[in-house]
């Protein structure tokens, strides 16, 4: 019996087939969605754009930023895609440093990378309440209350330390080894710089072993550097055998170095700087940590913070110290560099 015939027999009948003509597309869509969610291996870092503030307190530390970004890229943080850097380069400008850090706080950055010691200490103080993670790089941790300990920094701060005490002491040892005649050393320093005291202490330990006498020249500004050296230059006997620079932001500037370098050259004195660029001029040797490497190590810490590891539980990293020898300057000064040191040097400049 055909349906049409039956319909004629029962004209009041209801055709309800229509309500069962449903599309299977919805079920397929749901299943595919479930599979995507289950097996896609979602990594939220790919979808969130992090905000990072970077404050370099001194121009020569610029390489830290480069190393940091380089390593961050290797770790999957692509600038402009999932991370944005608010980079500020200052040069011994304390007031501006505070403004920049305040800006980072107002922008509620995911973390801030701050270096060297003074800006790092300032950042720690300013972020006490809001808890924004602070990563320091190339900062001394001894004697400045930056962290509780190397293994457990505490608070909201951690980073890559600058091994200022041991490095400063070793510089003096190297100076004595290269120039055994040196007994009077002009020590140019900013006594207010946070790392000065621990660095000086280690320095005094070495000096005592080798009968070194420091001719102290404390400065508070670039003008002080100029003035003091000019005053010293007026003397018939300047009374020093070498110039030794302490790590701080005043003597660390290129301008200060130019003044000091000129003085050293004029008086044919070995001068030991604290930063890499000194080897381009009259600097005799350089024992330092690679800023680039410090930046890379800082990126490792930043990655852990962005993976929700509390900063206080991330130990402070100490970078390697590398020896660079300005063989050319030693020839100018008539000094003989021991063969063993030359073999230790990462680079010998001829």
């Amino acid at each position: 019996m055909s349906k049409s015939t039956l319909q004629e027999i029962h004209p009041n009948s209801i055709d309800c087939n229509a309500k069962y003509r449903r599309s299977p597309g919805l079920g397929l869509y749901i299943l595919v969605t479930i599979f995507i969610c289950l097996f896609s291996g979602c990594d939220m870092r790919k979808y969130k754009v992090y905000q990072a503030g970077i404050l370099s307190g001194l121009e020569p530390f610029q390489n830290i930023t480069d190393g940091f970004k380089e390593k961050m890229t290797e770790l999957g943080y692509i600038e402009g895609e999932n991370i944005e850097y608010d980079y500020w380069q200052l040069n011994d400008e304390p007031i501006e440093e505070e403004k920049v850090i305040q800006k980072f706080i107002e922008d509620d950055v995911d973390f801030m990378l701050v270096f060297p010691s003074r800006p790092a200490k300032l950042a720690k103080a300013l972020t006490l309440e809001n808890g924004i993670p602070v990563i320091f790089a190339g900062a001394s941790i001894e004697g400045i209350d930056l962290v509780q300990s190397q293994q457990k920094p505490g608070g909201n701060i951690t980073g890559v330390r600058y091994p200022t005490p041991e490095m400063t002491a070793k510089r003096l040892e190297l100076l004595v080894e290269i120039a055994p005649h040196v007994k009077r050393v002009l020590l140019i320093f900013d006594g207010n710089y946070p790392s000065y005291i621990p660095a000086r202490k280690s320095l005094d330990d070495v000096a005592g072993k080798h009968d070194i006498i420091f001719v102290e020249n404390q400065v508070a500004s670039l003008d002080d550097v100029k003035f003091n050296l000019e005053e010293l230059d007026k003397s018939d006997d300047i009374g020093i055998d070498a110039i030794f620079m302490m790590p701080d932001l005043i003597t660390g500037t290129m301008a200060a170095w130019e003044v000091i370098e000129a003085f050293a050259i004029k008086h044919n004195l070995p001068v030991i700087g604290t930063l890499d660029y000194t080897l381009q001029g009259a600097g005799l040797f350089m024992l330092n940590c690679s800023h680039h490497e410090i930046g890379r190590l800082s990126a490792v810490i930043a990655d852990k913070i962005l993976r929700d590891t509390p900063p206080e539980s991330i130990p402070v990293i100490t970078p390697n110290m590398d020896l660079y020898i300005n063989y050319r300057q030693s020839q100018v000064l008539g000094l003989t560099i021991p063969g063993g040191l030359l073999k230790q040097a990462k680079q010998v400049i001829r």
């Binding site: 019996m1 039956l6 319909q7 027999i9 029962h10 009041n12 009948s13």
Partner: peptide, 14 residues
């Protein structure tokens, strides 16, 4: 009550 069912589908159902 005057309504009649649609006689369609398989023979058993019809």
């Amino acid at each position: 009550r005057t309504l009649q069912a649609d006689v369609s589908g398989p023979i058993e159902v019809a």
